[in-house]
C-alpha cells in the first residue's frame, strides 16, 4: 500500500505533465505541513508562525544562489541549518507560556521576520522579491528546466527523504515521549521526563524541516518573495493538517494535495468566491470528520476489518 502511494508521482508525472508546477507546490506544502505536524500534532505545541522558519529557509537558499552558490543540495542543507538554529533559539521563548502565549509569540516572531525582510530591501529585494536565483544542475547533471521536470522530481525526492526521517522520529521512543508530553505533561513530569528538553528538540527539528521546505520552494521557483514569511502561509499549513489529519504522517501529504487541488478547482469555477467554498468545506470536515482525511481512512479500514471478521464468523 505504502509502496504504491510513493510510486504515485510517476503516473502523475505523465498524466499531468503540464501541471507539474502545481504538483511541485503540493510536495513542498506537504513537507511544510509535515514539519508543523511534528510540532503541533505530535508535541502539541500550537503555532501561528511556522512560516518564520519556512521563510528563513527560502531566503537562505535564495541568497546563497544569488550570491554565487547555486549548488542545490548544500543550499538546501544550509536552509535547514539556519532554520534549525532559529528554531532552537526561539523555542525557549515559545515554550515559556501557555497555549495562548505560544500562539502570540510564534505569530510575533514570524511578523517581526516579515517586517525585517521588508526593511532589508538591499539584501532581500524587499517587496519586489529576490530576483536572480540561479540554480546549478543537481549533482552537476540535472538542469532545472523550463517545464519544471527537474524541480518536480527534486521536490518529490526531498519530500520522500524527509518523510522517512520524520516517520522514523515519530515511531521512535522519542516520538512516544512526545505523545506523552502532549497527552499528559503532568504525568510525564511525574515519571521524571525532561518535558522541556523534549519540546525544545521537537520544535527545533520541526523548524529545520520547515526551512528545508522553504529552501525547496526558493530553488524550485528560482524566486523568493515576502510571501514566504506571510501569515497566510502559516495558516495554510494549519488548514492542511485540519484537512489531512494531524498527528499522522500521511495527514500532511493528503491534506496538502486535497487543499491545493480544491483551491485550484474552486478558484477555476468561482474566481471570486472560492474562499467561501473552501471555508464551507472546512466546516463540514470539522463537523463530520474531525480526524481529517486520515481519520476517515482509518474509520473505513476499521469498518472493513469488522465486516471481514463478521464474515469469518
Amino acid at each position: 500500500m505504502e509502496i504504491l502511494f510513493w510510486l504515485l508521482p510517476i503516473p502523475l508525472f505523465f498524466l499531468f505533465g503540464l501541471r507539474l508546477p502545481l504538483l511541485t507546490e503540493i510536495a513542498i506544502l506537504a513537507l511544510f505541513a509535515l514539519s508543523l505536524d511534528l510540532i503541533l500534532g505530535y508535541a502539541g505545541i500550537v503555532s501561528l508562525g511556522h512560516a518564520a522558519f519556512f521563510g528563513l529557509g527560502a531566503y537562505t537558499a535564495g541568497l546563497l544562489a544569488v550570491h554565487g552558490w547555486g549548488e542545490p543540495i548544500t543550499g538546501l542543507l544550509a536552509a535547514g541549518a539556519v532554520a534549525t538554529a532559529a528554531g532552537f533559539v526561539s523555542s525557549f521563548l515559545v515554550l515559556r507560556g501557555s497555549d495562548l502565549t505560544r500562539l502570540m509569540v510564534t505569530l510575533a516572531i514570524s511578523m517581526m521576520l516579515l517586517e525585517a525582510a521588508n526593511r532589508l530591501a538591499w539584501l532581500t529585494g524587499g517587496a519586489d522579491g529576490l530576483y536572480g536565483v540561479t540554480m546549478w544542475p543537481i549533482f552537476g547533471i540535472f538542469e532545472f528546466d523550463l517545464y519544471g521536470h527537474t524541480a518536480y522530481w527534486y521536490s518529490v525526492i526531498v519530500l520522500f527523504i524527509s518523510f522517512v526521517a520524520l516517520r522514523a522520529i515519530v515511531n521512535s521512543p522519542f516520538g512516544l515521549a512526545l505523545r506523552g508530553v502532549k497527552g499528559n505533561p503532568l504525568r510525564m513530569r511525574a515519571i521524571g521526563a525532561p518535558v522541556n528538553r523534549h519540546l525544545v528538540k521537537a520544535f527545533t527539528i520541526g523548524a529545520g524541516f520547515a526551512g528545508i521546505a522553504g529552501g525547496l520552494l526558493a530553488q524550485a521557483t528560482q524566486f523568493v518573495s515576502l510571501d514566504v514569511l506571510a501569515f497566510h502561509r502559516s495558516a495554510e499549513a494549519l488548514l492542511v493538517l485540519v484537512i489531512g489529519g494531524s498527528g499522522a504522517v500521511y495527514g500532511g501529504i493528503l491534506g496538502a494535495a486535497a487543499f491545493r487541488v480544491l483551491q485550484e478547482w474552486l478558484s477555476g469555477i468561482t474566481p471570486q468566491y472560492w474562499q467561501f467554498w473552501l471555508g464551507a468545506g472546512l466546516i463540514v470536515l470539522v463537523l463530520f470528520a474531525r480526524g481529517g482525511l486520515i481519520g476517515l481512512w482509518r474509520a473505513l479500514v476499521r469498518r472493513l476489518h469488522r465486516t471481514r471478521d463478521e464474515e469469518a464468523r
Partner: peptide, 20 residues
C-alpha cells in the same frame, strides 16, 4: 505507557532513530 516510563528512567526516551 509503561514502556515510556521504563525508557525515560533509562534515559532512552531521547533515542530518535531506532523504532520503538
Amino acid at each position: 505507557a509503561v514502556a515510556l516510563a521504563v525508557l525515560e528512567r533509562d534515559g532512552k526516551a531521547r533515542a530518535m532513530w531506532r523504532p520503538l
